[in-house]
């Protein structure tokens, strides 16, 4: 197995670009879906969106990556960032939407909603002020956790990129996805497989853990202690 050239920050830019594109799209779609479900305007989709987070666990990221590879290979797409964004979007959307639905349907959010409706608030006020402004910290926390997941998502992107590279160029495909064009986690995956003893692999692993830990800590800081835990204490 050949050793891939790996620098400490190889792939970081691709990850930043991909997450910068995929995260807003994912959050906007998830937010719109969650608001519609909370307003009981989604019809038959309501119950399905509520359980989407759990049902989507049945489809592993590696399978999502395979589907993205098939779509990209069939359509002739070769952009690494485009394929990465699509894989991240499909992999993270159901969980983000289900969490937001849960947030907007919590006891406290419902109480605010009923109070606003009883006071004669318009649907626009309920959507913007009651749901979004009232839960802005929780929405921020969900966004941070989704970003953390996107930064370290590997299986979906590896299979998607490797599948496309294999379909188009022939031969051993892994070397076609060279650093620094692939996302950080993907470069790290191939580096870990090729040269696990290398110090740079260790530093990159520490960077990944630190990044996720910082994002999770920030999301916890933003959302505060859950009400249920406070009531038990």
């Amino acid at each position: 197995m050949s050793v891939l050239p790996v620098g400490a920050f190889d792939g970081a830019l691709t990850t930043v670009f991909s997450v910068a594109i995929a995260l807003p799209i994912t959050m906007i779609v998830a937010l719109m879906a969650a608001l519609t479900v909370a307003a009981e305007a989604a019809g038959a989709a309501s119950s399905l969106v509520r359980s989407a987070g759990r049902s989507a666990r049945a489809v592993p990221p590696v399978v999502t990556g395979c589907a993205v590879a098939v779509i990209a290979a069939a359509s002739g797409a070769t952009s690494i960032i485009g394929i990465t964004v699509l894989a991240l979007f499909i992999a993270c959307l159901p969980a983000a939407a289900a969490t937001l639905v849960e947030t907007f349907n919590s006891r406290y959010a419902r109480r605010r909603l009923y109070a606003a409706a009883a006071a004669g608030a318009s649907p626009r006020y309920i959507a913007l002020a009651v749901h979004i402004r009232g839960s802005v910290r929780l929405i921020g926390a969900v966004a941070l956790r989704t970003a953390a997941r996107m930064c370290v998502e590997t299986a979906a992107i590896v299979v998607a990129l490797a599948g496309v590279a294999g379909a188009f160029t022939g031969g051993p495909a892994l070397t076609n996805i060279v650093a620094p064009h692939a996302p950080f986690a993907v470069v790290q995956f191939f580096a870990s497989a090729a040269d696990p003893d290398a110090p740079v692999v260790a530093w990159r692993a520490i960077a990944l853990v630190a990044l996720v830990l910082a994002m999770h800590a920030a999301s916890r800081l933003i959302e505060g202690e859950p009400h249920e835990s406070l009531s038990r204490a």
Partner: peptide, 26 residues
Amino acid sequence: IITSGRLCAWLVVFAPVSVVAVIAYA
């Protein structure tokens, strides 16, 4: 806005379903 919200809700539901459909086709 309500229509686009409904579309987004169905997109959330169909994201995993479409993955299964694509790999079944392949």
